[in-house]
Design a protein around this nucleic acid. Sequence first.
RNA 1: GGUGUCUUGGCCGAGUGGCUAGGCAAAGGUCUGCAAAACCUUGUACAGCGGUUCGAAUCCGCUAGACACCUCCA
Length: 494
Amino acid sequence: MPLYDNHTIKIYNTLSGEKEVFEPITNGHIGMYVCGPTVYSNVHLGNVRTFMSFDMIFRYFKHLGYKIRYVRNITDAGHLENDDDVGEDKITKKARLEAIEPMEIVQRYTVDFHNVLNTFNFLPPSIEPTATGHIIEQIELIQNIIDNGFAYNVNGSVYFDVHKYNESNDYGILSKRKLEDLIHNTRALDGQSDKKNPQDFALWKKAEPTHIMRWPSPWSDGFPGWHLECTAMSTKYLGDYFDIHGGGMDLKFPHHECEIAQNQAAKGQDPVKYWMHANMLELNGARMSKSSGNYINPAELLSGDNDIMSKAYNPSVIRFFMMQASYKSVLDLTDDGLKAAEKGFNRLMDAIGLIDKLKPSAATSSFHVSDWKQKCYDAMNDDFNTPILIAVLFDAAKFINQIKDGSATLSQHDLELLKETIEAFTFDVLGLVDTAKENTGIDKLSGAVDILINLRKEARLNKDFALSDKIRDELIAAGIQLQDGKDGTTFTTN
RNA sequence: GGUGUCUUGGCCGAGUGGCUAGGCAAAGGUCUGCAAAACCUUGUACAGCGGUUCGAAUCCGCUAGACACCUCCA
């Protein structure tokens, strides 16, 4: 019997605004689509948080034994600059500034994106489709929407008729907006527009002669509107009705609202059963933006090469920091927060590292491991509550330290269960990496440090504390912390 | 201006009608040559005002503040 049969997961569905019991459309199988990055610059750290939230969700579903297809696209066709843009998209603009080919930009930043995600120990999605690889599908979709009367062609550009759509559907169902409010709040834009109404959005834009990225279509040589690719790729790979669609909170409107409208207009249904939105990442209490200077990119955060943080942080520390907050909450990235996370993370890793050295101490345990295990699942089943999970993991860390100190007992069976469970949740589900084990030279290092430990022991026996403290302090300076216990001295490398 | 979310102890951050979140920092203790690490103990917080209730941080209203979206943005 698969593990998922024993668990009921609740997911906060943005569409209903409530936590709902998760029931896959097809038993044992899950289809999940997440809007990926636009690869015209280095990946945004906030983007990393969003994808990390869904990576955790992906990992938990896999842990439960689901067969899950996770699709995350690469937007390589660029979005329109704005509705009145005459046809130059972001990627083209950047390419011109840097005097290289658009696809060269795409390649460079796609590689950067994958490198960053690998550094943070992301699992690769099942499929990572590109917008430019699905132009035909997008053209077909536009034709469907035109045939159904919800789009119109003006001078080679095709627009979605929001007002017509809203007569028979609810435009604003996801973002809880009313079309009337949108109308009142749309300021009049300068310049001539082909659109019937300002709320209408482009499905296909005719390319200007200078525009490099262009494809032939029944309406003009041009390129697809920016909401269309996700509609085309999600339903192509996951079907006309799939389980989960995720993305950043800022995509809720207009992007996801438009996706629903496009699907309704083309196929008569919203293909998504559960809409999930990950919240924003702030930096020192304010929104991150390059223009304000309140900005740090992932590489700078990892290398310490920046003016914002006091030091470099291990990717697992950053991951731990992010997992300590709910994916639904705004999270504020600060140096103090990362420092606190680093200490907590190291404490957890130290405890997990101790498990292999523990010996079963009694036939009965003073810690209810199976109850504790259930708490881990309860936390995750409650809309992927990783902060609670981490709190529960710390309960185990405390207990492990107590066994080491001899103030708690654990049976052989429970010891194995504890090890298996804490490692599954820490490494498989949360995706953290044990930095000590990661250090491949650990065995040789261990031999060398043992020599120093013995020298220090001799010095202490001879009351040569100047020498013993020198050994201890210089090892600390080298990143090696000695730990004196009842059964001798051990060390950690954090 | 509109829509939505939020305001929790020194800091971060869960919880959401009665039951210890957790981490970091802090204080006291155990251990130690002194430390560190670990363990034990301590802290009694929910923006303000009013209301509902036997009981509210949790529900409702108002006020103040923050953030997001409405315009490219994860």
